[in-house]
Every structure is written in structure tokens, then in C-alpha cells.
């Protein structure tokens, strides 16, 4: 029974990966066409198809994860392979859920690509057969602590993608602002009124109207024009901040729940085990990120870098620390 269920789980996971791959391509195509003509882009059904496929892949992955859980008769997050499966499932889940409120389909490329990469690595390099839980993991805290940590990771992942988009968008805005300043000097033609940089609508009207200055201008135009339909960098930063503070709450809870569990299982609530150290480091980086928002000179680019470093630390904790560092949290099952 266990074998049959886990085989179906693998099958379902491979199907979901195939669909993520298609969704990834469609999201990327859509993003790449962003630099093109507005009318064509607007009429495009690409993002809607890509979203539908992502939802389908999510459901298949959900089935795969549930089957794995049933096969093992426990929560499906007790080793590296299962962490990767449940973790990416939650990241995609958070992405789909947030899209109900805000249109963040433009980070679909990142989300599906990320899920695909991790599922691919996990199922080829880190696959392990279903084994029962060792006594140290037999606790309801496994359900709470790990699940909430994954949830936090989901929000941090989206925060990372939005912060990256924010950085690129900001660079584009700067390049375009410079081009607008330079243009009237280099050519004596009355160009369309220099649009304010932050407003994306007027931005696109400026670039969509070719004028005599076009050669001079396009030479200076950013290579990042595909971002022009995305929200401006300030809006992207706001989105990132809203998601990251939710992630930060979950992370704080993970820390506390982990300490409570550690007290029960290991006899101390905090012992600077490698995993504890990295959880603390991540918490501190994101605490810094939240402070940066109300620190003069730290909003914008610096904040975005902090959000990205924070998520890099999360990934480091999840991969390198799990596989190569020794410590009490050695449950990768490898």
C-alpha cells in the first residue's frame, strides 16, 4: 500500500513539474513581450493561460504531497525531498492566494521556475523512500513548527521576487530619467512632454510614441524595457514590504515554536545549534529590513538588497545547512 501510494505520488509530482515547465515558458514569453506594443500585449491571453496551468500544476503537486503523506501515514515534511515538495507547494500556494488580491502575475516566471528547479533537484538528487519518523520527530510540533516555517518561506520568496523586480525597475526608471534629460539637448525636436518617471502609464506613452529623437533616445533606453508594464518601483517595494512582514510574523512564530519544541525534545529551548543560528540570522536580517523602511536613506534599493539577502539566507539554511552542516536538525534523510 505504501509503495503504491508513493509511486502515485511521484507520478503526480512529475506531471505537475511538466505543467510548471509550460507555465514557466508562457510567463517568460509574456514578460519578454512586455517591451512590445501595448495593444498586442493587452489582448494577450498568455498570463491567464499561464495562471491556469500554474493552478493545475499546484493541484497535482498538492495531490502528490498528500499521497506521500498518506503513504507514510504522517505529515509529508520529514526529510529533504519532502521539505522541497511541501515547501515549493506552499510557495506556489501563497503566490496563487496573493494573486486573488493583487495582480502579481509578472513574478510567475520566478515562482514556477523556482518550484521547477527545486522539485527537479529534490526528485533526482534527494529522493528517499518513505521511512517512518525517528522518535525525536514524533511530536505535534513537527506539524506546527515546520509548516509555519514553510509558510514564512513562501512569503519571503515572493518578497524576494518583488524586491528583485523593484531593483530592476528602479534601474530602468533611472536610465529613462537620464534619457529624458539628455534628449532635448541632443536633438532640437520638441519631444513629447517628459513624463514623470514614477507613473508607469505616462511612461509607456512616452516610449510608445516614436519621434525624431528616437535614435538618440533608444540608444539610451534601458535594456529593461520589458518591465514597463510592471508597477513602478515604489509600488513594487510596497508589495514586497506587505508580504515580507507577514513572512516575518510567521518566522517569529517558527522561532518561538521551535524553542518550545527544543525544550521538550532536547531539554533546552535554545542551544545555538547550526539551524537555530541560521534561523536567528534570518530573523535579524528581516528585522533590519523592517527597520530600513523607516530609516532615511535605506528605503528603495538598499531595502531591496536586504530582502534579497534575507531570502538568500533562507535558501542557505534550507539547502547548505541541511546537507553539509552538522547539528541536531539533521533530518535531511540523506
Amino acid at each position: 500500500m505504501t509503495d503504491v501510494l508513493s509511486q502515485y505520488s511521484v507520478l503526480s509530482l512529475y506531471s505537475s513539474m511538466a505543467i510548471y515547465a509550460i507555465a514557466f515558458i508562457l510567463f517568460t514569453l509574456d514578460l519578454a513581450r512586455g517591451a512590445g506594443d501595448d495593444a498586442v500585449v493587452k489582448a494577450s491571453k498568455l498570463p491567464r493561460i499561464a495562471m491556469a496551468l500554474t493552478t493545475l500544476a499546484f493541484l497535482l503537486q498538492l495531490a502528490a504531497t498528500l499521497l506521500r503523506g498518506f503513504a507514510a501515514s504522517r505529515v509529508p515534511w520529514a526529510n529533504m525531498y519532502e521539505f522541497a515538495m511541501t515547501g515549493t507547494l506552499i510557495i506556489v500556494g501563497v503566490f496563487l492566494a496573493v494573486n486573488i488580491k493583487w495582480d502579481l502575475r509578472f513574478i510567475g516566471t520566478f515562482v514556477t521556475g523556482f518550484a521547477l528547479l527545486f522539485l527537479g533537484l529534490a526528485s533526482t538528487r534527494y529522493y528517499v523512500e518513505v521511512v517512518p519518523l525517528p522518535p525525536a520527530l514524533q511530536s505535534y510540533w513537527l506539524v506546527i513548527h515546520v509548516f509555519v516555517a514553510s509558510l514564512g518561506t513562501g512569503f519571503f520568496a515572493l518578497g524576494f521576487a518583488l524586491s528583485l523586480a523593484q531593483l530592476l525597475q528602479h534601474r530602468r526608471e533611472l536610465t529613462n530619467a537620464a534619457a529624458h534629460v539628455v534628449a532635448p539637448v541632443s536633438a532640437t525636436v520638441s519631444a513629447p512632454v517628459a513624463a514623470p518617471v514614477s507613473a508607469s502609464a505616462s511612461d509607456s506613452s512616452a516610449t510608445a510614441t516614436p519621434s525624431a529623437t528616437a535614435p538618440a533616445k533608444s540608444a539610451r533606453r534601458s535594456r529593461l524595457e520589458f518591465l514597463k508594464r510592471l508597477p513602478d518601483s515604489i509600488q513594487l517595494e510596497n508589495y514586497a514590504y506587505r508580504l515580507i512582514i507577514i513572512g516575518f510574523i510567521f518566522w517569529t512564530f517558527t522561532l518561538i515554536a521551535g524553542a518550545v519544541w527544543a525544550e521538550k525534545a532536547w531539554g533546552r529551548y535554545w542551544g545555538w545549534d547550526t539551524k537555530e543560528v541560521w534561523t536567528f540570522i534570518i530573523w535579524t536580517i528581516y528585522a533590519g529590513y523592517i527597520h530600513a523602511r523607516s530609516t532615511r536613506g535605506w528605503r528603495g534599493t538598499r531595502s531591496a538588497w536586504l530582502a534579497m539577502i534575507g531570502f538568500a539566507a533562507v535558501m542557505f539554511n534550507f539547502t547548505i545547512v541541511n546537507i553539509f552542516f552538522k547539528g541536531l536538525h539533521a533530518y535531511s534523510g540523506l
Binding site: W272, T274, V277, W278, F280, I281, T284, I285, A287, G288, H291, L306, V321, F325
Partner: peptide, 13 residues
């Protein structure tokens, strides 16, 4: 805060 985060790293290595 950032300094604290960096200072905590060697203890994990």
C-alpha cells in the same frame, strides 16, 4: 542588527 547577523555566522561554521 546587520552586524549581529554577520557576527552570528562563524558560530555555525
Amino acid at each position: 542588527l546587520l552586524l549581529l547577523a554577520i557576527a552570528a555566522v562563524p558560530g555555525s561554521i
